[in-house]
Design a protein around this nucleic acid. Structure first.
Lengths: 359, 359
DNA sequence: CCACCGTGCGGAAACGTTTACATGCTAGCG
DNA sequence: CGCTAGCATGTAAACGTTTCCGCACGGTGG
C-alpha cells in the first residue's frame, strides 16, 4: 500500500490524475503488467475459475507488486452487491446494544464485509431515512430494536434483505430475547419477598420489547395476585430513571421493575441521594444486564438477556438471508433469566420504613 | 446466478430484471419520464445549477413519482467520492468509545453521510486491514485510539484523509484529551490523603494514551515525592481489573490509579469480593468517566475526559480535511479534570487495616 | 479422419452516474 | 440588423469492474 505515499504524480503511464481513494492502480494496469486481458485478471480475483494455475500466479504477482486492490465501488456497480451490511439502532450510547453490534461486526469481518452503522435516536423517521440510505450501499440491513411500523419494515424488506433484532414482525427474520421467563421469575421473587404492589417503569413509546415486557409482567402479576402499575413511557436512560425516582418514593412504592438497567441505575442513584435505602425501602429490578451491572452497590437484581447471543443469531440470519433471499422467515429466541443480586429485599411496612430513615 | 429469484417481471417497461439493491429505477427512467436528457436530471440532483426552475420542478416531480434515488455506487465510481466516513476503534464494547462514536455519527448524519465502523480488537494488524478496506469506500477515516505505528498511520493518510482521536502522530490531524491536569490533580489528591506509594495499572501495549498517562503520573509523582510503580500492560477490561486486584491486596498497595474505569471497576469488584474495604484499605482512581460511573458504590473517583467533545472535535477535523485535503495538520486538545468521589480516602497504617478487616 | 466438446482466454457490452464539450437559442449591443 | 455572449440543454466519454460470447486449440469418440 505504501508504494509511493506522498508522491504527487504516482503510477500510471498516462499521468492522468487519480482522484479515487483506492490505490489508483486499476485492473487494466495489472492486465498490462501480466500480459493478459482484464477479463482474466478479473477471473483471477473471483475464485480463479477457468484460469491456468501459472497465469493465476503471474497475475497475482503483478497485482501484489503494483499494490492493486479491486475497486469495491466498481464491482458493486456491475454486480449490484456491495459486500456491506448495515446496522441501525436507537442509541449507540446505550450499552445494551454494544454486544450485539460487536457480534455483528465480528461476523461481518470474518467475511471481509464492511459494516455501516446508524443511530436513529429512537426516531422512526430518522430510522427509515438511515435504513433507506443504507439500502443502496449494503446487501442487508439489521434493524435493532426497530421503532418502525410493521408495514414500513416489510416495505423495506421488499427492497433489501432485512433482519430484526429485539423485535418481531410477521414474515421477517428476527432474533429476540424472550423476556417472559426472567420477568415471571422476577414477579415471583418479589411476591416471595412479601411485596403486594409492583410498578413497571415502561420504556419508550413504540418499543416492541417494552410491550413484551409489559405483557409478561401483567400475566405474571395476574397469576401471582400481585398488583401491577405501569408507568411511562420513559426514555431508556439513566436520567429518565433519576427523574421518575422522586415519584416512586413519594408514592411509597415498595418494588419497581425497570425497562432497562439504565433506568434502574437512575432510580438507584437518585434514591441514594434522597437517603432512601435500597433494598430496604425500595426493591429495584433492572433488565438486560447490560454493563457489568454487578459492579454497582447494591448490585442490581436484573433480568439478564444473552444479548451477545442474540447478536450472533441476528448476524447469522442476516448473512443467510443475503445469500438465500427466498427462505422462509426464521425466528431465533434466546431465553432471559432472573439474576438475583442485592437490590431486592423483603417488603417493609411504612412504620418500619420510618424507623429506617432516621437512625 | 440468482438473476430472477422471486419476482417474475416486476417494474420497468423493458422487463429487464433489476438485481441492484437500489430502487431499480435509474436516471434514464427519470429522464424519459420528464422529457429531458440524463445530464439534466443529473444536474437537477446536484445543486440544480444551470437548470430552468420549471425543468427542475418537472424532473423532481417525475423522480418523486418513480421513487428514484441516485445510485451512490455509480456516483462514487465516477466522482471518486463516496460520501461515507469510516471509524475504526479497538473495542466497540468499551463504553469509552460510545460518546465519540455517537458524536461522529451525528456529524455524519447531518451531512447525509454513511458511517462505516470497524472493531480492531486492539490488534494493529486487524486495524490496518479494516482501515484499508474502508479506504476504498470512504472519503475519510477516523482512527480512534489507534495502535498503528506512526509510519503506518502516515502511509494510510497518504491514500485517504485520516484523523486521529486519542492519539497523536506528527503531521496528522488529531483530537485528544490532555490527561495531565486530571492525573496531576489525582496524584496531589492522593498525596494529600497521606499516601506515599501509588501503583499505576497500565493499559494495553502500544497505546498512546497509556504512555501519556504513564508520563503524566511519573512527572506528578516526582514533583510530589510520591513513589510510583507501573504495572502492566493490561487489557482495558473489567476482567483485567479483577485479575490484578489480588496482587494489589497481596502487596498491600494503598492507592491505585487505573488505565480506565473498566479496570478500576474490576479492581473494585474483586476487592468487594475479597472483603477489602474501599477506600479504607485501598484508594482507587479510574480514568475516563465512561459509563455513568458515579452510580457504583462507592462512587469512583476518576479522571474525567470530555470524550464526547473529543468526538465532536474529531468529526469536525475529519470533515474539514475531507473537503480541504491540503491543510496543515491541526491538533485539538480538551482538558481532563479530577472528579473526586468516594473510592479514595486517607492512607491507612497496616495495623489499622487489620482492625478494619475483622470487626 | 471428422465432428465435437471442453478449456483458457480475449473482446466488448453492460452497470448508473458525472461532466467536459458541443449546440441551439435568446438577448443585448454596436 | 448582425455578431456575440451567455444560458439551458443534449451528446458522449469516462469511472473500474463483471460477465456474456466467441474464438482458437487440442483431445476424444465414432
Amino acid at each position: 500500500m505504501d508504494l509511493e505515499p506522498p508522491a504527487p504524480a504516482p503510477a500510471g503511464r498516462s499521468g492522468r490524475t487519480t482522484r479515487t481513494s483506492t490505490s489508483g492502480v486499476t485492473i487494466r494496469d495489472v492486465a498490462a503488467a501480466s500480459g493478459v486481458s482484464i477479463a482474466t485478471v478479473s477471473r483471477c480475483f473471483n475464485g480463479g475459475d477457468r484460469v491456468l494455475p501459472q497465469t493465476l500466479e503471474r497475475v497475482h504477482a503483478a497485482a501484489r507488486e503494483l499494490g492493486y486492490t479491486p475497486s469495491r465501488t466498481a464491482r458493486g456497480l456491475v454486480t449490484g452487491r456491495t459486500a456491506n451490511i448495515g446496522v441501525v439502532l436507537p442509541d449507540v450510547t446505550n450499552p445494551f446494544f454494544a454486544p450485539v453490534l460487536a457480534a455483528v461486526e465480528s461476523a461481518a469481518e470474518s467475511q471481509d464485509r464492511g459494516v455501516f452503522i446508524g443511530d436513529s435516536r429512537e426516531d422512526p423517521t430518522a430510522e427509515l431515512r438511515i435504513a433507506q440510505r443504507m439500502a443502496s450501499q449494503a446487501d442487508g440491513i439489521l434493524l435493532v430494536s426497530s421503532r418502525l411500523p410493521d408495514d414500513a419494515v416489510r416495505a423495506l424488506a421488499a427492497r433489501v434483505p432485512v433482519v430484526l433484532a429485539n423485535r418481531v414482525v410477521d414474515g421477517i427474520d428476527s432474533a429476540v430475547i424472550d423476556v417472559e421467563p426472567g420477568l415471571t421469575a422476577a414477579v415471583a421473587h418479589l411476591a416471595g419477598l412479601g411485596h403486594e404492589r409492583v410498578v413497571y417503569l415502561g420504556g419508550p413509546a413504540g418499543s416492541w420489547s417494552d410491550a413484551r415486557k409489559s405483557d409478561a409482567l401483567s400475566a405474571a402479576a395476574r397469576a401471582t395476585g400481585l398488583h401491577l402499575d405501569v408507568w411511562g413511557p420513559h426514555r431508556p436512560t439513566f436520567a429518565a430513571g433519576r427523574a421518575v425516582a422522586d415519584r416512586l418514593v413519594a408514592e411509597e412504592v415498595g418494588a419497581v421493575v425497570c425497562y432497562d438497567d439504565l433506568v434502574a441505575f437512575g432510580v438507584l442513584s437518585r434514591c441514594t441521594e434522597l437517603g432512601v435505602p435500597v433494598p430496604e425501602a425500595l426493591s429495584i429490578v433492572g433488565c438486560d444486564d447490560a454493563l457489568d451491572t454487578g459492579m454497582a452497590r447494591p448490585a442490581l437484581t436484573t433480568v439478564a438477556g444473552p444479548s451477545a447471543q442474540m447478536g450472533r443469531d441476528a448476524a447469522e440470519l442476516l448473512l443467510a438471508r443475503m445469500t438465500t433471499p427466498t427462505r422462509d422467515a426464521e425466528r431465533r429466541v434466546v431465553r432471559s433469566r432472573l439474576v438475583v443480586r442485592s437490590s431486592t429485599g423483603p417488603a417493609t411496612e411504612p412504620g418500619d420504613l420510618d424507623r429506617l430513615a432516621l437512625p
